[in-house]
Computed example of a mutant assay.
Amino acid sequence: MTSTGKKVLIVDDDPDITLALAAMLEDEGYDVTTIDRGEYLEQLPEQNMPDVILLDMLLSGVDGREIARRLKQQPATRHIPILMLSAHPNAAQEAEKAGADDFLAKPFELDELLNKVALHLHSSA
């Protein structure tokens, strides 16, 4: 498939989920970067900012909710849509409180994920 030129950053500490998400998104033409530790988000290079971030809520190290709050407070990153992922109960409300733009409960359908990514990429364009 032809590249969309859109960059998706996946932040999840489960390598199986990260690999599966990356493969699905790359099949759709997205340029995918993955990281497994939330602390790495602190040093996002300004010239290579993602167009959307898929962020696991419960990460080892820095919690995904804290990462979302930090990203939404910084002028360089506040515009990037954050789609928070979690299997945790009450996670949708937690994601909203943390500043995430959307939420997806694990496990989710591939089409649901792709639709949400496309929606946020379109609305942030």
Rank of each mutant, 00 (worst) to 15 (best):
M1D: 13
M1L: 14
T2A: 15
T4F: 03
G5D: 01
G5C: 03
K7T: 13
V8E: 04
I10A: 03
P15R: 03
D16A: 13
I17A: 08
T18L: 13
L19I: 14
L21A: 11
E28K: 15
G29F: 03
Y30E: 09
Y30F: 10
V32I: 10
V32M: 08
T34I: 04
I35V: 12
E39P: 06
Y40M: 14
L41G: 04
Q43W: 13
L44G: 02
P45M: 12
P45F: 11
M49N: 09
P50Y: 02
D51G: 05
V52G: 02
I53H: 05
L55F: 03
V62D: 08
G64C: 04
A68C: 15
K72S: 07
K72E: 08
Q73S: 15
T77Q: 05
T77C: 08
T77A: 09
T77F: 13
P81I: 01
I82A: 06
I82P: 05
L83I: 15
M84N: 03
L85A: 01
L85R: 06
S86G: 06
P89W: 08
A91L: 06
A92W: 02
A92G: 01
E94I: 12
E94K: 13
E96R: 07
K97H: 11
K97Q: 09
A98Q: 00
A98W: 03
A98L: 01
G99E: 10
G99F: 02
D101W: 13
D102V: 00
F103K: 00
L104G: 01
K106F: 01
P107Y: 02
F108G: 07
E109R: 11
E109F: 05
E109P: 12
E109T: 04
L110D: 15
L110C: 15
D111T: 07
L114W: 05
L114G: 03
N115D: 14
N115Y: 09
K116F: 05
V117L: 10
V117N: 12
A118W: 00
L119R: 12
H120R: 11
L121T: 11
H122F: 04
S123D: 13
A125W: 01
